[in-house]
């Protein structure tokens, strides 16, 4: 059974490679595409990509593990990326992170089934901090109440 699974091609990953001309230098883009669609990078997806681009699986693992963005396991339904870099610290990001942990009942960077809280290192919204990003949407001047409202809004969109 295991051997059989090993040979199963991940259709989406195969298509993603094709869309990038099976070019090895487009690996990061391909990984982004697959993760965007599937939420994480599965073994079969990585195997398929390695084969399509004609690179070793060791190489692809090296790349995936180097970059913070890539996830090997399925994540929470919703992830709040909260900035803990300097300009946001200067306006209370550390306190906000503690509050958000309590509010959402999760720990920073420790995952979660429904909602997860992930540290970000500058989101380019430093004059309007504290900043968070959820599903590519940026928020500024965030406080406890806003975290509540933003989470509720995005969760409602999912279910």
């Amino acid at each position: 059974m295991v051997t059989l699974l090993n040979t199963v091609e991940d259709k989406f990953a195969r298509e993603a490679c094709r869309a990038h001309g099976d070019q090895a230098d487009e690996l990061l883009e391909i990984l982004h595409d697959v993760q965007h669609e599937k939420g994480h990078l599965s073994d079969s997806a990585l195997r398929t990509i390695a084969q399509a681009l004609n690179i070793s699986r060791a190489e692809i693992h090296g790349v995936v593990s180097f970059y913070h963005d890539y996830k090997r396991e399925p994540g929470a339904k919703l992830t709040l990326h909260i900035c803990r870099a300097e300009a946001c610290k200067a306006v209370g990001a550390d306190t906000l992170i503690t509050e958000a942990e309590t509010l959402l009942d999760v720990k920073l960077d420790e995952g979660g089934a429904e909602v997860a809280l992930a540290a970000a290192y500058c989101l380019g919204n430093c004059a309007l901090g504290p900043a968070i990003m959820v599903n590519d949407k940026l928020y500024g001047r965030v406080d406890r109440a806003k975290i509540n409202a933003i989470t509720a809004k995005h969760m409602a969109q999912i279910s």
Binding site: A85, E86, A87, C88, Y121, C122, G124, N125, C126, A127
Partner: peptide, 11 residues
């Protein structure tokens, strides 16, 4: 790449 915290001019 504008990784420096506190910067946003490139963006």
């Amino acid at each position: 790449d504008e990784g420096d915290s506190g910067t946003f001019a490139d963006r």
